[in-house]
Each structure stands twice: as C-alpha cells, then as structure tokens.
Amino acid sequence: MGEVVRFVSKAERERLRLIREARAIYDSVFPPSQSINEQRDEPPLMHGANGANAQHPHNILS
C-alpha cells in the first residue's frame, strides 16, 4: 500500500511554529501547576502582609 502525504503550506507551518514558540514562552513565565492531588498533600501557603492597614478590606494598592 502507498503512503498518504498531506500537504502543509508554508503559512501553516509558520503558524504552528509560532504557536509552539508562544507556548514555550508562556510555560517559562507561568510554569504548569501541580496536579490537584499533589496540591492537596501540601499545606496551603500563607503570605504575611506588612503594614498596619495591610489587611483592611478598603486598603487598595495603587
């Protein structure tokens, strides 16, 4: 039997390359998070706030 060869235009190859490149950049900035099951095994991270009014509900950072 013969092989089926699919034509992919230069524009389509370029589009796919740009998508791969964008995904790599995104993943380097925002690494994929752990799975839900792995996150449940660890206690939640708590971040402290500095300043007297840091936890006041009307305190808006500008």
Rank of each mutant, 00 (worst) to 15 (best):
M1T: 04
V4A: 00
V5M: 03
V5E: 08
V5K: 09
R6W: 06
F7E: 14
S9A: 00
S9Y: 00
S9T: 04
S9K: 01
K10W: 06
K10L: 04
K10H: 12
A11S: 12
E12G: 02
R13D: 01
R13M: 03
E14F: 00
R15V: 01
R15K: 07
L16W: 02
R17F: 01
R17Q: 04
L18R: 08
I19P: 01
I19H: 03
R20K: 13
R20V: 00
R20N: 06
E21K: 13
A22V: 04
R23A: 04
I25Y: 10
Y26D: 07
D27N: 15
D27T: 10
S28N: 15
S28A: 15
S28L: 08
V29R: 05
F30P: 00
F30V: 06
P31I: 04
P32H: 05
P32Q: 09
S33V: 11
Q34P: 10
Q34M: 14
Q34W: 09
S35N: 13
S35M: 06
S35D: 13
N37H: 11
N37I: 08
E38L: 07
R40N: 08
R40A: 12
D41Y: 08
E42A: 09
P43E: 13
P43N: 08
P43Y: 03
P43H: 06
P44L: 06
P44M: 05
L45C: 06
M46T: 12
M46G: 09
M46R: 14
M46V: 15
G48A: 13
A49L: 14
A49Q: 10
G51A: 05
G51C: 08
A52P: 10
N53I: 14
N53A: 07
N53C: 11
A54W: 04
H56I: 09
H56V: 09
H56Y: 12
P57T: 02
H58D: 14
H58Q: 15
H58Y: 12
H58W: 11
I60C: 06
I60Y: 08
L61P: 08
L61H: 06
L61E: 11
